[in-house]
Each structure stands twice: as C-alpha cells, then as structure tokens.
Amino acid sequence: MIQIDLTFVKKLQIKKNPKDFSLLFQLYGPKIKALMIRGGSDYAFAEDIMHDTMLTVWKKIDLYNPSKGSFSSWIYTIARNKRIDVLRKKSSQPYVDINEVEIMSNDPDSEKLMLDSQLAGNVKKIIRQLPEKQKIIIEMAFNEDLTQKEIAKRLEIPIGTVKSRMRLAYIKLKECFKEYQ
C-alpha cells in the first residue's frame, strides 16, 4: 500500500503529474465509492460520483491548505458536496467550503484554527474510544448520509436523544483541540 503523506500531496501541488495522481485515485477512489454506496447509491452511480469527486480533487489540488485540515478531510468535504449536489439532486450548493470562508474572514481568532495531521490523529483516537451509542450515530450521519430525524427513526429513539448523543460526542471531540493547543 502506498503512503499518501503531506510530502506526496505537496509534490502534486507543485507539479500535477497524472501518474502520481493515479496512486491517489487508487487509494481514495474505492473508499469514496464505498461511502456513496453506504449513502444509498447504486454501484454505477457511486462510481460516477467518485469519478467526479476525484476530478475535482485533481482540478483544485492547489487550493488544498494543510494548515486548515487533513488531506482526507478535504477529500471528504468534496465528496460530501458532490453527494449533496448529485445524489440528492439539489440544484443549490449551500455548503460553504471552509477554505473559502477564510478568504472573507478578517477575524484574528482564525489563527487558532491551525490544524495538521496531529489533530487528525487525535480525532481518530477519540472516535475509536467513543461509547458505542455515540459512535453509531456519528457513523450513520457521516457514512450513511442520514439526517437526525432518519437516525432517530432507524434507532427508534426520540430526535432529542440523537441530538444529545451528538452533543456528548462533541464534548469528547473538543478535547482534541485542548490536547493540541
């Protein structure tokens, strides 16, 4: 298995080499396809969205800023936006890319937002340690593309309970920042 690290990504940002990019495609393509299938898409459609996502990654790779988040989270947000646009057939694109938000923001606090792979590592650790009840909800939201209402229905619990479990997970995740800062 190839290792996609920051050096690899930076090399691609400097020179968009299709051959190197094919390695990225082979690593993330199958994962994005799996994500789309969990979200309710069929195989052919999942592959179309994956194709589209990876094409955007190729086109916009120079816009990826490592200080704003991990490479995987960047790819995730692109895939999510495609899913919203294409899979749900919504004509509008309400999701604001955080990297774009930053362009407009003059808030001095935003310096605190610096992130790197260390944060991604902490998030991974905390996700794995979450109580099962919270983890299931997080996975349903992110992997299966379910709304709070749909999660409540699926688990046969009130929507208020879904929200409070999400809040509890947030309290744990927040510790990533504490550790990091």
């Binding site: 991990s70 995987s72 989270s73 790819i75």
Partner: peptide, 9 residues
C-alpha cells in the same frame, strides 16, 4: 470535517 476524513480513511 476531520471526523468525516477519519471515517473515509
């Protein structure tokens, strides 16, 4: 979004 990234990984 990092959570989303971790889950994709």
């Amino acid at each position: 979004n990092e959570v989303g990234g971790v889950l994709v990984e």
